[in-house]
């Protein structure tokens, strides 16, 4: 069974990682680069804001962004940076898939069959556990955002992932009526405790850019997790009958 899980994690994880990288460069990277230009002070939010600021602001940002894209293409470091992003995207998605297929293995040991359809549902549950639930307390941050102590945030992140994933598994596969109050309590607990936060906001990028970043990260995450679950479920079923 270990080899089956490892093969599934590598194949489905690499495929999902490549799709994630593609979607990252289509939707997310340009927002990161724009955020970094505010972080470095190259752009300034509300710089010289006038009554007609919204139109001017949009125009300025658009022009500046075009310029940035040109500069990015000519930057020799961009190739290394983007290559490393692709590599780490694949590594992170292989790690997600490893945990997902470990769940498939556990389900099979307990007598449950997992196929492509279950895989999609498991993938969406993975997205909720690893990205959506933590994002309620720690929204995906543009580079340059000032936040609470990193160690505290990582502890809250791992705790939220573990509690949310366990609660969803309980809701799906539990047999007793007490699973409902228990799962709801586990889902709510991290948000009742609250994510580590600071008392003030120090963001230098416009809120529109931060909102666009968070929304696109979550949108891309949902799509990739669903595909990942479908592919991993498909592979799992085929390797069982083989």
């Amino acid at each position: 069974m270990f080899q089956r899980m490892l093969t599934g994690a590598l194949f489905a994880g690499c495929a999902a990682g490549l799709i994630a990288a593609l979607l990252h460069f289509a939707f997310v990277q340009e927002v990161i680069l724009l955020g970094e230009r505010y972080e470095t002070g190259e752009l300034s939010h509300f710089q010289g804001s006038a009554p007609e600021a919204p139109a001017d602001h949009a125009h300025e940002a658009g022009t500046a962004n075009d310029h940035a894209n040109g500069a990015e293409a000519a930057d020799p470091n961009a190739l290394t940076r983007n290559g490393l992003t692709v590599l780490f995207t694949i590594l992170i998605y292989v790690s997600y898939t490893g945990l997902l297929v470990a769940g498939f293995g556990l389900a099979e040991t307990l007598g449950k069959r997992i196929g492509a359809v279950e895989g999609i549902l498991w993938g969406i549950a993975g997205f909720v556990s690893f990205q959506l639930a933590p994002a309620l307390g720690l929204p995906p941050e543009l580079p340059g955002t000032v936040a609470a102590d990193l160690g505290d945030r990582q502890v809250w992140w791992w705790g939220t992932v573990a509690l949310t994933g366990t609660a969803l598994a309980l809701l799906a596969y539990g047999h007793h009526a007490w699973k409902y109050p228990l799962a709801v309590g586990m889902l709510a607990l991290p948000h009742i405790i609250g994510a580590p936060s600071i008392d003030e906001y120090y963001g230098v990028a416009p809120p529109e850019v931060g909102a666009m970043f968070s929304a696109r990260v979550l949108g891309v995450g949902l799509v990739v997790w669903a595909v990942l679950g479908w592919f991993a479920g498909q592979l799992w079923e085929r390797s069982r009958t083989a």
Partner: peptide, 30 residues
């Protein structure tokens, strides 16, 4: 899976952090 996720997403060595930077932000890791 957890070990790989820790190395790719959470470990704070400067080299790892810089290499994984964009993807850590884009997957919502702290």
């Amino acid at each position: 899976g957890l070990a790989l996720m820790f190395v790719a997403g959470h470990a704070q060595s400067a080299t790892l952090h810089d290499a994984a930077h964009d993807m850590r932000h884009a997957t919502g890791f702290p």
